[in-house]
Design a protein around this nucleic acid. Sequence first.
DNA 1: ATAAATGCAAAACCTTTGCACGCCT
DNA 2: AGGCGTGCAAAGGTTTTGCATTTAT
Lengths: 142, 142
Amino acid sequence: MEQSVTLLKKHGLKATPQRIAIYDYLLHTEAHPTVDTIYASLHPTHPTMSLATVYKTVESLREAGLIQQLNVGEECFRYDARTSSHPHVQCLHCRRVFDLDPASFADLSDRARAQSSFLITQAQLYFYGLCPECQQVQDASD
Amino acid sequence: MEQSVTLLKKHGLKATPQRIAIYDYLLHTEAHPTVDTIYASLHPTHPTMSLATVYKTVESLREAGLIQQLNVGEECFRYDARTSSHPHVQCLHCRRVFDLDPASFADLSDRARAQSSFLITQAQLYFYGLCPECQQVQDASD
DNA sequence: ATAAATGCAAAACCTTTGCACGCCT
DNA sequence: AGGCGTGCAAAGGTTTTGCATTTAT
């Protein structure tokens, strides 16, 4: 919260209640929420905040480099306050998205470069499957 | 063309001219086109075909497993007749999408599984950067 | 003959935008 | 005080849907 205010200001963004709430929410969740989810989660405590503000705010935060936009392959984007690029894994059953350790996949860009002659600047790695909890549910329901 | 008809029927889809055209187009391009691109490309030869049909058709083809849907991180999906999952690399300058050889990245699912305890079923690997051609353009313009 | 697919138009949906007001610095 | 940010409502664009007609099997 203190942290959010400081970081916002440091990046030239006014620390309005809405921005603080949204950024703070993203800093403290691992759920990789969508715009809709952010809006719904904050609505109880910020009933006057509009969806348009959430859209505008995540865009400002993204421009400032405070959050990153994820594209898990759904129709919409998800947001993550961990801005360094790192691999994600999504459960196809419960739809949750988890982080993976980038160190384990650090060598990939070199492989891609070697194969394509591209100058690789970024990578997005998404894995899909069943999370441990949903594996149990699936087993139980068979 | 023969091939397209056979494959469509084998998957329980009626071989209509529109479907044949769309599937055939996807089979013979490496451009990973969007719905819009497909529509625009086929419009000259199929002037009566509607956008709605393209949307419905790619969805049918995807359900049948004849094509796969890609999400390169843009607002829209791209389509690819290579249905086995394989890594892609996109040029951030010309926006083209190229395939990479899956064999070079085959070991990744194991790493993800080891780290997350997920039952990994799919992966999508996207790399971004500058293609060889655009590297030259960039250099020249500097 | 039958069920499925097409094409049109309308609807639904999500996201963006313009503008007046209010708030942060 | 000044400018940026907000909220509303309207616009914009894309994707989906319903339905009558056509078409493949």
